[in-house]
Each structure stands twice: as structure tokens, then as C-alpha cells.
Amino acid sequence: MRRLLLALPFALLPLAVAFAADEHDHDHEHGSLGAHVHGVARLDMALDGRTLELELDTPAMNIVGFEHPATTDADKMTLALAKETLLKPHALFSLPEAAGCTATRQRVESTLFGDKDDDDHDHADGDAAEHEHSEIHGHYQFTCSAPNVFNKLDLTQLFKSFPATQTIQVQLVTPKRQMGAEVRPSNPAIKF
């Protein structure tokens, strides 16, 4: 078993190389940046007691189709619509009515919305315009009256609203277990 496991990385090396080539992780002089892959979003969900927290990280490309600051009216319109959709988490994450979740905090941030980029404190002002990539972060917190009812995360709506999103890397933490999954439109739900 152990030997087999040891040999695995070699067997999978071609895969890893191919995969790594897809990720264009830009080297900056300071700190480190997360991966930014168009089509791939990250969603973290934590459920403990009655608190439910969801955190969505996605390249702006997946949401609005561009990553430059909005200058035209059409771009501004797209941005406003996207923000509106992102601020309706009940629909976006198909939270079941029966769980009785009320949002206690929700926040959608992006340099495109004119928010400060909190990832890179060292950036000089006005640097945002030179940014090659923009991300959109969504942070949602709920208090649920019946968290036990909530046992499935269905991302169908998210894929429907933002069709440029092809994969969502989900990390789940519940009182019982931790789970990870790559969710695709063809199989958009995870049971936990």
C-alpha cells in the first residue's frame, strides 16, 4: 500500500504538469497571490451550530465577462446586475426554506466595484488600473433556525446565473465532517 502510494506521484506527474500549465499564477515581488483561473471558482462553506457561513472567490471573468474597470455604460450595467444577483444568496445557493436561514451579514467586494483590494496592501494607489486580473469575493453569514434540514448544497442557480463558471472547488466543514469536491454544472449538488 505504502509503496503503491509512493509510486503514485510519479504516475500522475504528467497530469500535474498539464494542470500546472493551466494555472497562470503571476509572480509579484512581494507576498504571494492565490491562483486565478478563469472558469474556476472557490466556495467555502462552514456550518456549526446555527451559524452558516459561505465564502465565494471567483475571477471577475466568470461573473461579468471582463476584468478591466468598467468604463462603458454596458459594462457598468453588467456589473450592477451581477452585484444584485450576488446579493441574493438565498436564490444563488438554493438555501432550503425549511432551514429558516436569515442573512446576518453579506458583503460582495471587488476592485471592479471600486472596493479597495485588500489582498495586496503594498500596492500603491492607482495601481488597480494596471491590474491584469480582478476577483470578486462574496461573504455571507446566516443564522439558521433549523440547520439540520440543510443537508445538501445545490449550486445549480450559481452555474445558471454565471454560465462562464465551469468548476467550483468546494470546501465544506460541518460539525460531523470536512469535505472537498469539484462541482460542475453536470453534477451541481453535494450532499453532506
Binding site: 507576498g31 504571494s32 462552514a46 457561513e53 489582498d119 466543514v173 469535505m179 472537498g180
Partner: peptide
């Protein structure tokens, strides 16, 4: 458990040295 991701982020973005925090289940 709610803090899991916040702490994970904090560690992954720690400026003291490059570190990686993982969720064992994931």
C-alpha cells in the same frame, strides 16, 4: 468550525513565511 476558513486564509497569506494550511478531510 466556522473559523476554519478564516484561519486557513490567515495562514496561507501569512507574511512571516510561506505556509500551507489544509483541511485534512478535503
Amino acid at each position: 468550525k466556522i473559523a476554519t476558513f478564516a484561519v486557513q486564509r490567515e495562514i496561507n497569506e501569512f507574511r512571516g513565511e510561506p505556509m500551507l494550511a489544509i483541511l485534512p478531510g478535503v
